[in-house]
């Protein structure tokens, strides 16, 4: 079954073609970063305008890369939420029109479920139970996917999302947008132990995060050093800030997996592209005997393939979404239909 996946929840216009929920035939992403860069963050109205301009060209390229036509497509999957309402609306309306025009089943997908399902594109099948750290510009949370396919949020940020903290600190350091990759690159030349930034909520016994205090601490520290005439090494600041973020994320994710007796851990979302997070999480999982399923960078950031994969899981269980479905900026996670590993014969590795 070939599923067309459409993702427009934030600032990437993405379309992919995925066979049987696991095999990526095409995965095309139209980035809008250049349009948001002057503002140092994602501007909702600009994102909505850009999605409208990019969706057809991206769709065209996906069909070409996948070597197929509309006749080969069996279903349409689309991100319904959570996300920016104006951005979501473009993808949802486009997906509905495609489903009507080609008489195809439609399936609406939760963006966060899509992120978690990105793991099945490389490991062959989603294999719960697993604990997922979802870290991006809009989300920072630890989610448990239990053996029955039910999601529960174990913890989340009480203020800023991780990607947002990276962007804000980068902006303060005079680095271009988006800040995540810039800080990651700069931090490689810095000493992560140079400045002891606070690890908020590390020992509070919850799986929640707080990142706004860390951003303020960076600002305070730089101002203090500036006033005291102490030389500031931007690479050290970047590395120390990044280390504080990563430290809490790694420790809390492992603590969550241990608390729930779960062996498998996954890290997804745009911030999962951070090289220090990948490195530290890999080491920590190896040391504690956890199996880490971390998608390659292209599947961690927002993409259509993860939406097609998540959509396929539900389609294979017979679920369908009506043409009257609305984009929902606050969509919550709902249980997967059946344990995905036994959803259908096509779910096994191939």
């Amino acid at each position: 079954m070939l599923v067309l996946g459409i993702e427009t929840s934030c600032d990437e216009t993405a379309v992919a073609l995925v066979s049987d929920g696991v095999q990526v035939r095409a995965n095309v992403i139209g980035s809008q970063i250049d349009q948001h860069r002057p503002y140092g963050g994602v501007v909702p109205e600009i994102a909505a305008r850009a999605h409208l301009e990019l969706l057809l060209p991206v769709l065209d390229r996906a069909l070409v890369e996948g070597g197929c036509t509309y006749d080969d497509i069996d279903a349409v999957a689309v991100t319904v939420g959570p996300g920016l309402i104006g951005a979501l609306l473009v993808g949802v309306a486009g997906a509905k029109a495609l489903a009507l025009a080609r008489d195809l089943p439609l399936i609406g997908v939760n963006h966060l479920e899509g992120h978690v399902c990105a793991t099945q594109l490389e490991s062959g099948a989603l294999d719960p139970p697993m604990v997922a750290l979802i870290v991006s510009g809009g989300h920072t949370s630890i989610v448990l996917l239990d053996a029955d396919g039910a999601f529960s949020t174990l913890g989340q940020t009480i203020d800023d999302a991780a990607g947002e903290a990276f962007d804000k600190v980068a902006r303060f350091l005079g680095l271009p947008y988006p800040g995540g990759p810039e800080i990651d690159r700069l931090a490689r030349d810095g000493d992560p132990a140079a400045i002891a930034f606070p690890r908020a909520m590390l020992h509070d016994g919850t799986f929640d995060f707080s990142l706004s205090g860390l951003k303020s601490a960076v600002v305070r520290e730089l101002r203090r050093r500036d006033a005291a005439g102490i030389e500031i090494d931007v690479a050290d600041v970047a590395a120390s800030f990044q280390e504080a973020v990563v430290d809490v994320q790694v420790r809390k994710t492992l603590a969550a997996a241990q608390a729930h007796g779960v062996e498998r851990i996954t890290v997804v979302g745009g911030v999962a592209a951070n090289s220090r997070l990948r490195e530290r999480m890999t080491a920590a999982c190896a040391a504690a005997g956890h199996r880490l399923l971390i998608p390659s960078v292209a599947l961690c950031t927002d993409n259509g393939a993860m939406i097609a994969a998540a959509g396929w899981n539900r389609l294979a269980a017979g679920q369908r979404t009506g043409l009257d479905v609305e984009a929902d900026p606050n969509l919550v996670l709902t249980p997967l239909p059946v344990p995905p590993s036994s959803a259908a014969p096509g779910g096994s590795p191939r």
């Binding site: 929840s9 934030c10 503002y39 140092g40 963050g41 994602v42 501007v43 909702p44 939420g81 959570p82 996300g83 920016l84 966060l112 510009g137 809009g138 989300h139 949370s141 989610v143 999601f151 529960s152 949020t153 989340q156 800023d160 999302a161 947002e164 929902d328 900026p329 606050n330 969509l331 919550v332 996670l333």
Partner: peptide, 10 residues
């Protein structure tokens, strides 16, 4: 820019 409008989690 609205940093905080990407929706809520479960």
């Amino acid at each position: 820019i609205s940093w905080r409008n990407r929706g809520a989690l479960l």
